[in-house]
Amino acid sequence: MRSAAIEQIHAAYSFGASRWQVMRHVILPSALPEILTAMRVGVGFGWTTLVAAEMVAATKGLGYMVLSASQFLQTPTVIMGIIVIAAIAYAFDLLMRWIERKVIPWKGKM
């Protein structure tokens, strides 16, 4: 909410906007860039945590595959697993950037 300029809030109230309208049309659009950036970071941390959890306590998944292949010195499998993990992480990042462009086209223009 701190990203909304107080002048914009006062201007909306002076034009007769209700509290709900100020929240919906001034405060939420101002806060959306930070919200979606935090979601993007959260998706990255979530993916990293998932792969790490698969390495620690799973019997299936990419993390388990990479860890078990490394124990049997299957270097091509390890490298391919790392590439797949990175490609999926990059795809998640591209998806979040696309969502940001569609939902908040004004980002960086306020």
Rank of each mutant, 00 (worst) to 15 (best):
E100Q: 14
G46T: 01
V84D: 02
G63R: 00
I104W: 03
M55S: 04
Q21H: 08
I9S: 05
S14P: 04
I85N: 01
T37L: 13
G61S: 06
R19T: 13
E100H: 04
G61M: 03
P76E: 01
A12Q: 09
S68P: 02
F92Y: 12
P29R: 08
L50N: 05
V84K: 00
A38C: 12
V78H: 01
A17N: 11
A12K: 00
V51N: 11
K102T: 06
K60N: 07
S68Y: 04
S30Y: 01
W98R: 10
I6A: 07
A17C: 14
I83R: 02
V26I: 11
V51I: 15
T48Y: 11
L95S: 10
I6R: 14
M55E: 02
A58Y: 07
S14K: 02
I6C: 01
K60P: 00
I9W: 07
V84Q: 05
P33Q: 04
L28M: 14
V51S: 05
A91I: 11
L73F: 15
A31P: 09
E7L: 14
P33A: 10
P29I: 09
T59K: 14
H10Q: 15
K102L: 14
A86S: 14
A53C: 07
S3I: 03
M39E: 11
A69I: 08
I6Y: 07
F72D: 04
S68G: 03
K107V: 06
W47C: 07
H25C: 10
V41N: 05
I88G: 02
V84M: 12
M1L: 09
L62Q: 07
F92N: 05
Q74D: 11
I83W: 08
I104Y: 04
H10L: 13
V103K: 02
P29V: 09
W20C: 09
M65D: 04
R101M: 06
I104V: 15
V78P: 00
S70I: 02
L95H: 00
G42V: 03
F15E: 08
I35P: 03
V43F: 12
M96L: 07
L62T: 00
I35E: 01
M39R: 04
M23E: 11
W106L: 10
A57P: 03
M1V: 14
Q74K: 13
M96E: 02
V66I: 15
A31S: 10
S18D: 13
A57E: 05
T49H: 09
P29M: 13
E34N: 13
V41M: 10
E34R: 15
K109T: 07
F45P: 09
L28E: 05
I35H: 06
A91T: 09
S30N: 10
L67E: 08
M55K: 01
V66K: 04
M65C: 01
G63S: 06
I99A: 10
S18A: 12
R2C: 05
M55C: 11
I104H: 00
Q21S: 07
V103I: 14
M39K: 01
T59L: 12
T37A: 15
M23V: 07
I88K: 01
S68Q: 13
T59F: 13
M23D: 04
M39W: 10
L73M: 13
P105A: 03
E100R: 09
Q21Y: 08
K107I: 03
S18Y: 02
T75A: 12
H10N: 13
A38S: 15
S3R: 13
Y90V: 10
